[in-house]
Amino acid sequence: MPIPDLEAWAIFAKVAETGSFAAAASDFGVSNATVSKAMKRLEERLGERLIHRTSRRFSLTETGRVLAVRAAQILAEGEAVEAEAQAKSSQPRGRVRLAAPMSFGVSHVAPALPDFLTAYPEVTVDLQLDDRLVDLVAGGVDVALRIAELADSSLMTRRLCPVRRWVVGAPSYFARRGMPARPRDLKDHACLVYSYLATGETWRFIHLDGTEESVRVKGPLSATNADALQDALLAGLGVAMQPDFLAWEAVRDGRLVVACPDWAPPPLAINLVTPAGGPRAARVAVLLDFLAHRFTAGSAPWTLELAERGSI
């Protein structure tokens, strides 16, 4: 059985109600041609006329008068369904799939979520932590936090705050091995390597004066998660390139020291990323707003303290 032409029935109901193709087109915000084509489809499908129409007169046929009542019911039911759906969608409820890098997710996203879940008790969050790049569409992910300088893409992106990376080591390590004067000196140091770094074992730096320098590093430990390097760092086994949101407390407390402070790796940023396309569900919109407020520069805890102390 063919699918009912619900659009044509809705248009017929509006034509019968207003007594005019033009008025129906205006009410629905469509062209007169769209209304005419819908009526033609419906009459061809039924095999008889529903309307007598000339340049001066407009009237329903006998069949048209009978079917106009049913068409009006179809239109009213459709409008009621949409109104109910819109009312429900305006109330944040349901599950949101949120993806984040492992270290940032554990250190900052997970601790923030109780505040969000308390504010929106009908929303549930499926937090997916992975340092690998997640395909949002294929993975059914609603929102992702990505730490990168993102290239243009079809995804919707909102930049939240910059991420600085420091070469850090324990005071005991530098007491034993000496402090590198510039990045190229790191080739003679034990370097703890984050395996998912885009440049691999080559660390790139930019000096305050714009000079660039790269060095290929090696050391006793590499890991697919930056947190996994922290114990070896604090034990004085080497140096690592760590993001500020992970290392700031240890630097503040003196447990780690920043080497080559006039040199910095290319900047990154924390970004909110969502699939492109139609209007967002309320549950997604409120989570986006919450994360944006929590992790913008000046709101995130590590940016607040670093701002008070000045750049390290």
Rank of each mutant, 00 (worst) to 15 (best):
D5L: 07
D5E: 15
E7F: 12
A8K: 05
W9I: 09
W9E: 08
W9P: 01
A13Y: 03
E17L: 10
E17T: 10
G19D: 03
S20C: 09
F21Y: 14
A23T: 00
A24L: 05
D27Y: 04
N32I: 07
T34A: 15
A38Y: 01
K40D: 12
K40T: 14
E43M: 03
L46Y: 12
R53M: 01
S55I: 04
R56D: 09
R57V: 08
F58D: 00
T61I: 07
E62Y: 12
G64D: 01
R65H: 08
A68R: 10
V69A: 12
A72I: 01
Q73D: 13
L75Y: 01
G78F: 01
E79T: 00
E82Q: 13
Q86S: 15
A87F: 10
R93L: 00
R95D: 01
V96T: 07
A99M: 00
G105T: 04
V106L: 15
H108K: 05
A112L: 11
F116M: 07
A119S: 11
P121R: 09
V125M: 05
V134R: 13
V137D: 10
G139P: 02
D142N: 13
D142H: 13
A144Q: 12
L145Y: 04
E149T: 11
E149Q: 15
A151I: 11
S153M: 06
S154H: 12
S154D: 15
L155Q: 13
M156K: 14
R158F: 01
R159L: 09
C161I: 04
R165M: 07
R165A: 09
P171I: 02
P171A: 04
R176A: 13
R177F: 02
G178N: 01
P180E: 05
D185V: 04
D185F: 13
H189W: 06
A190E: 04
A190V: 08
V193G: 01
A198P: 11
A198G: 07
G200V: 11
T202N: 06
W203T: 00
F205V: 02
F205D: 00
I206E: 15
D209G: 06
D209N: 15
G210D: 12
T211S: 14
E212Q: 14
S214W: 11
V215G: 04
K218D: 14
K218V: 10
P220V: 08
L221T: 09
L221P: 11
D227Y: 11
A235P: 06
G236D: 06
L237C: 02
G238F: 03
A240F: 07
A240H: 05
M241S: 09
M241T: 08
L246T: 02
A247Y: 03
E249S: 07
E249G: 02
R252M: 11
D253N: 13
G254A: 02
V257W: 07
V257K: 06
V257F: 07
V258T: 08
C260A: 01
L268H: 12
I270H: 01
L272F: 04
L272W: 00
V273S: 04
T274I: 03
T274D: 04
G277Y: 05
A285W: 08
V286H: 05
L287A: 03
L288W: 03
F290L: 02
L291N: 03
P301V: 15
P301F: 14
E305K: 10
E308S: 11
E308M: 13
G310H: 06
S311L: 11
